[in-house]
Design a protein around this nucleic acid. Structure first.
Lengths: 118, 118
DNA sequence: CCAACCTTGACACAACCGTGGTAAGGTTGG
DNA sequence: CCAACCTTACCACGGTTGTGTCAAGGTTGG
């Protein structure tokens, strides 16, 4: 037999049938269907289900998280926007009390001006 | 003044003070503190708060999603695992009913063998 | 034909998310 | 000194997630 039905797939992957349907609605693994509508899980789907399980178990990650990663991987626009936000200067020098933040910026500015003048 | 306190920051960014604390707990924007513990938002934080707002508004994304993206960007191990899962053959040829999946694989195999023999 | 599957849809429920409020107490600036 | 701010820590409350179970009905294979 080339593909397993949902209960068989559940059996070999460790998911419950209920969760296989849920995973499908999340868009993570979408088995194809027989002509009468039965879900059919082929070897690739089964493998992905197992590795998905490991992924969730080993890292503290939710299905929704993986779903979001999937979105990121497919929506270039979204990925660009998120990456842009993430890469926007997330740090400023350590050890500078914020009371002195303006002062620090001024000094930096002075150094820049000095450098330019030199 | 070099940095704004939480209510002022809320005022200029459109977040509520409550949400600024929440955003902080999510690890997305961590303002530094005055010597007495007050949160101090400098221009970079304020800018990031505004762009974060836009990001959430324009794409259908939650704070948790952005938080996960942040995790991905900092945890190489996690990113590698997720990418690996995502890139695992997500498709197989369209139009092949799964009843015929094994058949399809066999044909492919035959074609490969033929190619090798030619 | 009938038992054993499959389908979708619904109800349920604990746990968490996003958000607001409030209370008890420290800090600050005029 | 005192009003107006800040802090953390809670209670609340509707919405979503993850998961199970059940019902009503179609499919399948011996």
């Amino acid at each position: 037999m080339a593909a397993l039905t949902i209960n068989e797939a559940a059996e070999t992957t460790g998911w419950s049938p209920r969760m296989l349907r849920y995973v499908e609605r999340e868009g993570l693994i979408e088995p194809s269907r027989s002509s009468s509508g039965y879900r059919l899980y082929g070897p690739p789907e089964l493998q992905r289900l197992r590795t998905l399980r490991e992924l969730l178990a080993e890292h503290e990650v939710s299905l929704g998280d993986v779903g979001f990663a999937l979105r990121l991987s497919r929506d270039d626009d979204l990925r660009t926007a998120v990456d842009a936000w993430l890469s926007a200067r997330p740090k400023r020098p350590e050890g500078v009390a914020d009371d002195d933040w303006l002062l620090f910026e001024q000094r930096k500015h002075e150094r820049l001006l000095q450098g330019a003048a030199a």
